[in-house]
Design a protein around this nucleic acid. Structure first.
Length: 441
RNA sequence: CGGGGCAUAGCGCAGUCUGGUAGCGCACUUGGUUUGGGACCAAGGGGUCGCAGGUUCAAAUCCUGCUGCCCCGACCA
């Protein structure tokens, strides 16, 4: 992409309403525009990141055996009356009337709808286990939206729903999502810690929040420092096998948010091993049994011929929240420092003297070669000053800056700058290209 | 929903106390000089001062009501 034909409305100064660093940087980098409290437009750069996160989440859901669907944002109130949640949900639900004065709502979540889909088609235990997920915009009319996209009213969520014959089978489904989540956050460049969460009336040990540590996090969290060093299961993990050993390993050490915090248990940990920090919740997995299947009549025939309500769980990842969460975890004084996996572009190609025939020609060649090699490049071909160009590239946080100017070019040399380490290296055009295209094609 | 704050050009702000021609920086447009870490000179364009009432000869400024946004808390993904 050439910057001259892109839409990257960066700001030197952040709008006053933005207080936390991720919100400020997202506005300054031209990633989002706030349209109303907690409601955002995604501008090209931000949308690219959102899609990259979405894709990683998708790949790991698929790997774990979940199947993607897409349910609508607008739902019928009748469905929610069946589960009893239409009245229970309260003011957070955005209620709408259509032209026939039918009561509709903008979905805050999809348990009812997925249960309806399930009961319409699935009759037998032979069709289980089943896990359906989608990524769709949700709306929750928060009392106080804040922190930019981290607590918006409209937000993109991946929500998966598992269906099993009984609680033990549901536990396998739960474990698959547990491991898929570990892998997902790892690939996003985050260290996420599963923490025991409140299971409400269902009880049991099958609810975990996944928390990333960040000083601006909304909740206080406590854990043993060992949990920060645990190995994340690899891509070769066999999800058909029993994943209990992995889940056990990850849930052995102490880790809790403040509402589940056990001061006495935490005190037993050696002081130098205690971690007390702020955290951002980026995922939540939950087993809820027959809470919806029972009232909504989602039953399957078991091998013995009896019909039983299906056992369900739901598994959420805040996709749009993650954009802010990643920035909270990955930035410095100059701007965003994207993990490579979610960077909107891999390389920023900086033409230090646009308009100079030799420099333009060299940049054009480099731009084409990188594109041909499948490397995402943002080419700053605009007529600007070097300092401003560097500042922009630092702000938007692309992993590599490929710096081309007439001075170096006279010796056949360019510079590569690593955004993360800040290291700059002078090398030949060929060597730089080889470096950035290694592993591609 | 309780408490607090803010609203003046695209963004950041001054002006409000003490009523009297709408300002500054950045950004934008044009011309020129520049160009290796957020350039400089010159000339421009851009505003129902959040909205609605009221007071006054006169309101960005004083009064009343409303709306929007932000922060703290409670609540929640």
């Amino acid at each position: 992409m050439r910057l001259s034909s892109y839409f990257l409305p960066i700001l030197k100064e952040a709008p006053r309403e933005a207080e936390i660093v991720s919100h400020r940087l997202m506005l300054r980098a031209g990633m989002v525009r706030q349209q109303s409290a907690g409601i955002y437009s995604w501008l090209p750069l931000g949308y690219r990141v959102l899609r990259k996160i979405e894709q990683i989440v998708r790949e790991e859901q698929d790997r774990a055996g979940a199947v993607e669907v897409l349910m609508p944002t607008i739902q019928s109130a009748d469905l929610w009356r069946e589960s009893g949640r239409y009245d229970a949900y309260g003011a957070e639900m955005l209620r709408i009337q259509d032209r026939h004065e039918r009561e509709m709502l903008y979905g805050p979540t999809n348990e009812e709808m997925i249960t309806d889909i399930f009961r319409s088609y699935v009759r037998s235990y032979k069709d289980l286990p089943l896990n359906l997920y989608h990524m769709q915009w949700k709306f929750r009319d928060e009392r106080r939206p804040r922190f930019g996209v981290m607590r918006g009213r409209e937000f993109l969520m991946k929500d998966a729903y598992s269906f099993d014959t009984d609680k033990e089978a549901a536990r396998h489904a739960y474990n698959r999502m547990f491991v898929a989540y570990l892998r997902t956050y790892e690939r996003l460049g985050l260290k996420a810690i599963p923490m025991r969460a409140d299971t409400g009336p269902i009880g049991g040990d099958m609810s975990h929040e996944f928390i990333i540590l960040a000083s601006t996090g909304e909740s206080q969290v406590f854990c043993h420092k060992d949990v920060l060093e645990l190995p994340v299961p690899g891509a070769d993990t066999d999800f058909s096998q029993d994943l209990t050993p992995i889940v056990d390993e990850w849930t052995r050490a102490y880790a809790a948010t403040d509402e589940m915090h056990d001061e006495a248990a935490f005190a037993e940990i050696a002081e130098e091993d205690q971690v007390s920090a702020r955290g951002i919740e980026v995922g939540h997995i939950f087993y809820f049994g027959t809470k919806y299947s029972e009232p909504m009549g989602a039953k399957v025939a078991l091998a013995d011929g009896t019909e039983q309500p299906v056992h369900m769980g739901s598994y959420g990842i805040g996709v749009s929240r993650l954009v802010g969460g990643i920035i909270e975890a990955c930035h410095d004084d100059n701007g965003i420092v994207w993990p490579e996996s979610v960077a909107p572009f891999h390389v920023g190609l900086i033409n230090l003297k646009a308009g100079d025939a030799a420099t333009d020609a060299a940049c054009n060649d480099i731009y084409e070669e990188l594109n041909n090699a499948g490397v995402d490049v943002l080419y700053d071909d605009t007529d600007g000053r070097a300092g401003a160009k560097f500042a922009t590239m630092d702000l938007i946080g692309l992993p590599w800056q490929f710096i081309v100017g007439p001075r170096g070019l006279a010796n056949g040399e360019v510079e590569l700058k690593c955004r993360k380490t800040g290291e700059r290296e002078t090398l030949s055009v060929e060597a730089a290209l080889t470096r950035l295209t290694a592993g591609k094609n």
